[in-house]
Amino acid sequence: MKKIAVVAANGRVANKVITEALNRGFEVTGFGRNDNNTKAQKYIKKDIFDLTADDLKGFDAVVDAFGVWAPEDMPQHSTTLKHLCDILSGTDTRLVVVGGAGSLYVNKEHTIQVQDTPDFPDAFKPVANGMGKALNELRDRDDVKWTYISPAGDFQADGERTGKYILAGEELTLNDRGESIISYADYAIALIDEIEKGNHIQQRISVVRA
């Protein structure tokens, strides 16, 4: 039985991940700074910056579902991820990061990202920049077994759970209908699949609805 921890466990993506993991027989511990709003078997109320190596010891994987939206909070994408990397450094515990789509590339040369394109909404640029910066810093960590999973461009909180997805890489990928879309529920399937049988260590991958 896999034993996982979900950090920032009260968020909507985190709750889908927890539900998917429980349905597959995983043992799930949630960590969050607010009162428990999850289905995890165990919940520890603790701020992410207060987590220690002992808190995360013995887990097969730690899922980082942290996210902020206010422009002034954007540096926390980097600082929280660095903290998790530091306390997992040198261990066999995988760190699986719920990422963003803005940093996916739209050309084969990997010089233009989604967030650089003319149609990218200004309102999402601070988040895309903040998460993209954290990803770039994560790429420098060779002491942690990390995997960064970007969703499709249209990431739907209440979208259908189809049970099908396309696993892709660093480039924005469209399905056969020309869509870049995935629900939180299908994203959670892909994330748990990666923990269960994937081996994309120190890689960024992405998922889109099939």
Rank of each mutant, 00 (worst) to 15 (best):
Q41R: 12
T91I: 02
D119V: 13
K125L: 15
P118K: 10
Y184A: 10
D35W: 02
R141P: 06
W69M: 11
P118E: 09
Q203A: 03
P75G: 09
E72C: 01
D54H: 05
Q156M: 13
L104T: 08
L135V: 02
A14L: 07
A8V: 01
L81G: 02
S180Y: 07
P121C: 04
K2T: 11
V17C: 04
Y43L: 06
N36Y: 04
A128F: 07
D35A: 12
I181Q: 06
E72K: 15
T162V: 11
K46N: 06
G132W: 13
H110V: 00
F59H: 05
N129D: 14
K39L: 14
L22N: 10
E160I: 07
V7S: 02
T117D: 04
Q115F: 14
M131W: 03
P151R: 08
T19A: 14
A168M: 05
N23H: 11
L138G: 00
D143A: 05
D50K: 12
I189S: 04
P121W: 06
V144R: 04
Y105S: 08
N23C: 03
P121E: 06
D158R: 07
A14H: 06
I166R: 12
T91M: 02
G178Q: 08
A8G: 11
D119I: 15
A123C: 07
N199Q: 02
T52K: 12
R94S: 01
G102E: 11
V114E: 13
H200G: 00
D54T: 12
K133W: 07
I48E: 05
H83Y: 03
V98D: 01
L56S: 07
G90K: 01
N10V: 07
A190V: 02
Y184V: 03
T93L: 06
G99F: 08
R33S: 15
I205R: 01
L81C: 05
E171V: 07
L104C: 11
H110E: 14
K46V: 10
N136S: 13
A185Q: 12
Q156N: 14
F66H: 06
D119E: 15
P71K: 11
G163Q: 09
A210P: 15
N199Y: 00
Y148I: 01
I166K: 13
L104M: 15
S103I: 10
A134Y: 05
P151D: 10
K46P: 05
P151Q: 11
N23R: 13
G159C: 11
E196T: 11
